[in-house]
Design a protein around this nucleic acid. Structure first.
Lengths: 216, 216
DNA sequence: GAACTTACATGCCGAATGGAATGTTTTCCA
DNA sequence: TGGAAAACATTCCATTCGGCATGTAAGTTC
């Protein structure tokens, strides 16, 4: 009655008016809350111990709300994959701003990949990946999204190093990504951190040699 | 009365006498049946969907028997890790017999590591590994066993290539292991097999260059 | 061959899970 | 302003899980 600005929701007032939110706003809010909670759960408790009840509790959302947005648990997980990938991509893109050119790009690029593909968020990815091996539905959801992430990151490097031969860059990139993922696995169960750093350093040397053309 | 050779169980007769088995035999039999079934379950259904009921069913063993040998599920899993590692180690050892010397060892060695660390059995390892990230008890069981497998395989290569510098061999070995594990992950969710083979080939070239001393 | 230990089987229980059913509140739109 | 629709909350249920309790059979020991 009193302060109900009806048809023309001014952006300034509408966000300020406490208690009043657009349907779209409400939707977006609880949706991301659920997806973030899912990622948290995966990171902290692992896929096997992640239940929708736990997710709802963390998101501060009722089970009913969850079911309204994601009919089944599988659907929630599938959507979480996308959400997760977006966050990783955003992180990588944000960190890619300060990258140098020339040979130093190789070292820093490897570090960037390491951070992106072995960070906290990647633990959640790993959980979903491994789960997807025996879950066709999840695999179907993951595959395209992951492929897109890999390709877009590769394109990022192609932009940063336009003078570098395509073939060399691609090889270097994918080798680094896969090595990183292996090392990330090692890190997860508490492997020797010193050795990991040594290996990463060694790999940088090798990659530099390849970059210079010393190795075919 | 008739054929009961009592205190001195002749190996020949005891195995032949149908229906009569030593306690040790019975024990060993159901134990390995359970452990093998566990690995099968992990491979086919994944850690999250692996239940003791399923394991018992596959092993053809009652729940009571399982509980007799492994009080808790965690204990079963922990023991399965050891069993699993032993099987992998045996596979590697068996395949290592026909390895050549010199430069060709590098290529074939990489193939050997690939087969050992990315084969079917390794899917089960992966499941347990990822589960161990959020399960301290399981991690405690895995860590020493895995470390032992890694070291013993490294020692195998040290025996096969005695003339190779320690430092070079170690670096090459661990880089290959971790790269392999990353590629194994990629393979599990149906990544591009062609690209994997290309990367493996590329890596062999690089490794050969390192072996020759072309790269520091 | 009888006491004893080990191996195996069956049935049951509390807890937790994913999902369905149903009711309530908030926003939207004509 | 009133009704439809979307967002959210509560309750319940069938199933499954891991583990315990109790009982039976097979092997060992003296």
């Amino acid at each position: 009655m009193t302060a109900t600005q009806p048809t023309q929701p001014d952006a300034l007032t509408s966000t300020r008016e406490r208690g009043h939110r657009t349907q779209a706003q409400r939707r977006e809010r609880t949706r991301t809350a659920l997806l973030d909670a899912t990622i948290d759960c995966l990171t902290e408790r692992g896929y096997a111990r992640t239940s929708v009840q736990e997710i709802c509790a963390r998101a501060g959302v009722s089970k009913g709300a969850q079911q309204h947005h994601f009919t089944t648990k599988a659907e929630l997980m599938a959507t979480a994959v996308e959400h997760l990938t977006n966050r990783i991509q955003a992180d990588i893109l944000a960190a890619s701003g300060e990258l140098p050119e020339g040979p130093e790009l190789v070292e820093q690029g490897i570090d960037l990949i390491w951070q992106g593909f072995a960070g906290t968020l990647s633990s959640a990815v790993m959980e979903l990946w491994v789960a997807a091996r025996t879950d066709a539905e999840l695999a179907a959801a993951i595959k395209p999204v992951d492929k897109a992430l890999g390709r877009s990151t590769l394109e990022l490097f192609q932009t940063l190093a336009p003078d570098m031969p395509q073939q060399t860059l691609e090889t270097l990139y994918w080798l680094t990504v896969n090595l990183t993922r292996g090392l990330a696995l090692d890190a997860q169960i508490g492997g020797d951190a010193t050795r990991r750093n040594q290996l990463l350093t060694e790999w940088k040397h090798i990659a530099l040699a390849i970059y210079r053309g010393d190795v075919a």
